[in-house]
Design a protein around this nucleic acid. Structure first.
Length: 847
RNA sequence: GCGAGAGUGGCGGAAUCGGUAGACGCGCUGGACUUAGGAUCCAGUGGGGAAACCCGUGGGGGUUCGAGUCCCCCCUUUCGCACCA
């Protein structure tokens, strides 16, 4: 046992001015590891508390200061909960699959199977130095076959439940990278890594998860889960629920050209019965959130990819429409959606009958309508939609006002789209209704004739999980000519990712695994005929969607997670991470949890009881970046100042949930504080100093205990540290030296922030067990309340005096004391008009 | 454009319920100790003014006995999302 080995740490008599963090920190890190202090017995633990931090991607650059900041904030909360009596589980792992690692491996020419273990080892070394309360016996990596076996298993469960399906979908294709690139990697239509190279659109067969089936539940639970409000808002926006209606339009070719509606500014009469439509296709459905404006719908627009486009287009217009659709199809997916782009489009030659007005309105094809939202078709109301207005203006289509706002009427000209509230006009029997009443009335009116129904739409799309890449878990599917797509039997999992030298993607649009026949040729699990494995791998976000379930059960290889352990430890009590994952990771995790819940494998459907987003660290007022040369290397600071000072400074430089500015000079103040703590304990331990504590100091101590505890609870670490510093200033005011009873609880308060020095001082004070097996000090409510106050005296709201008085002074007494103060009396002439008394705080005399 | 934040001394930041603006720290000034100081300790430190006092939380209005905090308008800025009908 380490306690019997001679300590390399110098003793602390005479209150040495400073201590050597290197020795202290090494000593305690070794001791924690040897004693298993941070590895709770997960099967038996009482008062279980799961303290989770988003696991890092193990980059080659090593631990980023942002990681240290986040991990430290997480650790402080975990250590605090432990001192409050919980058994805390604080695991760690590595999110090591994905395009990030793969691209880096390609760049340096090292195989990811060699690179990743190296990076992870470096991360481990750096993380250990930070002094986290990590349970290293439950470490995991998403690249471990023992882990991704269960990632593949989850895929199969979704498949079984009809929540995984395959379809052709558009992707961004960089001809230079010879691979699919994410939307985020497309800049101005060009590849991020190949400026000047236009990204193209390609269509590939891809696997999807039906997350949209859970859209409503994902939205509703946001009302009760205890998460950062900013994160919940981001999720609500991402899910993007809109209520509206689907409206059906009869479509056809025009036979008679009376009552022209496509030229001039004339208002459609609403009685356009003179023309006749000969049907070209089945009726067309559009989605709108503004059914109230249907009397102003003067044309229809289809997305270029809409399946009815060929049917709808008349023979004369066919060539032009096809050319337009082809051009739109080639464009990359990002620049297609730039708002400022000029509107383009082409007339199909066909017309639709407006079910409200009976008028025939032209059908256009334009790329400002997106196939992936709603029905891929819209009714255009240029009078009340900015995009439709711009389009109608560009192509000379009629613009009709059907909503009149304050001070407007049916004839007020429209210089731009009016999107505000108001009353319906030019809308037949619905005139004078408000916008909201109008929506309801018009939808029910149309619904009677089968022309409309209320519909809810979501912006959320199904989750595409296919990646035509190498560095991920192979999707466990086998394609057989006879039997079709077959799931890999569960007992055959994992489908191991093979080691291949040529993991670089090429321009075939399929994964590098598709070049390895020896790997993908396998017998069909159903009929035994030779068949072919799926060569795509799954998205990294699937790896990270369930890792928190695995941590407590890492030693099991026959199931993803143990039911009993899971009941004891989950859902996660406290989850902390960056807001860059506000939507994707955090939404996918919730989705997978709900699915597992519906399968009866989990008794909760929300994975994280509380989630708090931490802030970002900048350096000397600027974002850290390699090109700026201001990237902070944690090793350097830990070498120079010690992990304790580094941790404490990171938590001191700003509010944890907002981040802050790292300035090198700032650390010295925190280091000085720890040195003063060290000196105080040394002095207090001298025999001649073990006097009775000072009651005034004890009062301050109890106030500090309360404040620090409250602050840690709401992650207000910077103010907790400030409070401890303030107490230190009282403790050592003037030439004063601290007494033992005054300083011992302070060591406990400091321990979540600076665990090593706290352990060392705790030991010096004669304790044999770790400080983290002790209990957080209780504060005395009677001492917390101030005995005397400085009553603020205002005259007309201006501070004129501060008078020391007992805290419980009554109004009469307080006012009398105030009035007799010369500085106050000077401003009070005659009888006051009014006197405000706030007990324990102030008196305001109004004259 | 839409959504969510932020704007307070020379700097990082406090002010939890509408009640002392500037806690705590950095930096700076002066002093003590010292062969020495980039160590330690003590005192001071929003601006103006000799003082009494006056002014001060991005700008302008308002509510209130009282506003950094609440309401309206505007400016700047960070981060998301971006033709979602």
């Amino acid at each position: 046992m380490t306690s019997s080995t001679p300590s390399s740490v110098a003793p602390n008599p005479e209150g040495q001015a400073s201590y050597n963090p290197t020795d202290v920190e090494r000593k305690w890190q070794e001791r924690w590891a040897a004693s298993g202090l941070n590895s709770p017995d997960l099967r038996r633990a009482e008062r279980a508390y799961y303290q989770l931090m988003m696991f890092p991607y193990p980059s080659a650059e090593g631990l980023h200061i942002g990681n240290v900041f986040a991990f430290t904030g997480n650790d402080i909360h975990g250590r605090f909960e432990r001192l409050k009596g919980h058994t805390v589980f604080e695991p760690i792992g590595f999110d090591a699959f994905g395009i990030h690692s793969e691209n880096y491996a390609l760049k340096v020419g090292v195989h990811p199977m060699q690179l990743i273990p190296r990076n992870i080892e470096n991360f481990r070394r750096q993380l250990r130095r930070v002094g986290l309360m990590t349970d290293w016996t439950h470490e995991l990596s998403t690249t471990d076959p023992a882990y991704y076996k269960w990632t593949q298993w989850i895929f199969l469960q979704l498949l079984k439940r009809g929540l995984a399906y395959k379809k052709r979908a558009a992707v961004n294709w960089c001809p230079e990278c010879k691979t699919v690139v994410a939307n985020e990697q497309v800049i101005n239509g060009e590849c991020e890594r190949h400026p000047g190279v236009k990204v193209e659109q390609r269509f590939l067969e891809q696997w999807f998860f039906r997350i949209t089936a859970y859209a409503q539940r994902l939205l509703e639970d946001l009302d009760w889960i205890d998460w950062s409000e900013s994160t919940k808002t981001a999720q609500r926006n991402w899910i993007g629920r809109s209520e509206g209606a689907e409206i059906v339009f009869e479509i056809g070719e025009r036979r008679e050209e009376k009552g022209e509606t496509t030229s001039g500014k004339e208002v459609p009469s609403g009685r356009g019965g003179s023309s006749r439509l000969s049907p070209l296709s089945s009726p067309l459905s559009v989605f709108t959130t503004r059914p109230d404006t249907i009397f102003g719908a003067t044309y229809l627009v289809l997305a270029p990819e809409h399946p009815l486009v060929p049917e709808v287009t008349t023979r004369e217009r066919r060539a032009e429409v096809r050319a337009y659709a082809d051009r739109a199809g080639k464009q990359d997916l990002v620049s297609r959606k730039v708002t400022e782009r000029e509107k383009t489009g082409v007339f199909t030659g066909a017309y639709a009958r407006n079910p409200a007005t009976g008028t025939d309105i032209p059908i256009w094809v334009a790329d400002y309508v997106l196939m992936e939202y709603g029905t891929g078709a819209i009714m255009a109301v240029p009078g009340h939609d900015e995009r439709d207005f711009a389009f109608a203006t560009a192509f000379g289509l009629p613009i009709v006002r059907v909503v009149a706002g304050e001070g407007q009427d049916a004839n007020t000209p429209l210089a731009e789209a009016y999107v505000g509230d108001g009353r319906l006009v030019n809308s037949g029997q619905f005139d004078a209704l408000g916008v909201e009443e109008g929506k309801q009335a018009i939808v029910s009116w149309l619904a009677e004739r089968g022309a409309a129904k209320p519909v809810v739409n979501y912006r959320l799309h199904d989750w595409c999980i296919s990646r035509q890449r190498y560095w991920g878990p192979p999707i466990p599917i086998i394609y057989c000519d006879a039997c079709g797509a077959q799931p890999v039997p569960e007992q055959d999992l994992p489908v191991q990712l093979p080691f291949i030298e040529d993991f670089r993607p090429d321009d075939t649009g399929v994964s590098p695994l598709a070049r390895h026949e020896e790997w993908y040729r396998v017998p069909c699990p159903k009929c035994g005929q030779m068949a072919r494995r799926e060569t795509d791998v799954s998205d990294t976000f699937l790896d990270s969607a369930w890792y928190f379930l695995r941590y407590p059960s890492t030693e099991l290889d026959d199931r993803p997670f143990d039911a009993e352990i899971t009941r004891r430890w989950l859902p996660v009590d406290s989850y902390i991470g960056g807001n860059e994952h506000a939507v994707l990771h955090l939404l996918y995790t919730r989705f997978i949890t709900m699915v597992l819940h519906d399968m009866g494998l989990l008794d909760f459907e929300e994975p994280f009881k509380t989630f708090r987003a931490h802030g970002l660290i900048i350096h000397d007022g600027a974002k850290m970046s390699k090109s700026r040369g201001n990237v902070v290397n944690p090793d350097m600071y830990i070498n120079q100042w010690g992990a304790d000072a580094f941790r404490t400074y990171l938590m001191f430089l700003g509010p944890f949930e907002e981040g802050g500015d790292f300035r090198d000079r700032g650390i010295s103040g925190v280091k000085r504080f720890l040195d003063r703590l060290w000196a105080s304990v040394g002095e207090a331990e001298l025999p001649e100093r073990s006097e009775e504590p000072d009651p005034a100091v004890m009062r301050k101590l109890h106030q500090t205990i309360k404040k620090v505890g409250d602050d840690i609870g709401r992650l207000s670490y910077n103010t907790a540290i400030a409070a401890m510093m303030e107490y230190m200033n009282v403790l050592r005011a003037g030439e004063r030296t601290a007494r033992r009873a005054e300083v011992e609880p302070l060591v406990q308060l400091v321990s979540p922030f600076a665990p090593h020095i706290a352990e060392e001082l705790w030991e010096q004070m004669g304790h044999e067990d770790s400080i983290f097996t002790s209990r957080w000090p209780e504060y005395d409510q009677g001492l917390v309340a101030a005995e005397t106050i400085e009553l603020v005296v205002q005259v007309n709201g201006k501070v004129r005096a501060r008078i020391p008085l007992p805290a419980d002074v009554g109004q009469e007494e307080a006012v009398a004391a105030a009035a007799s103060d010369p500085a106050v009396a000077k401003f009070v002439t005659g009888t006051p008009k009014k006197v405000i008394f706030v007990p324990g705080r102030l008196v305001n005399i109004v004259v």
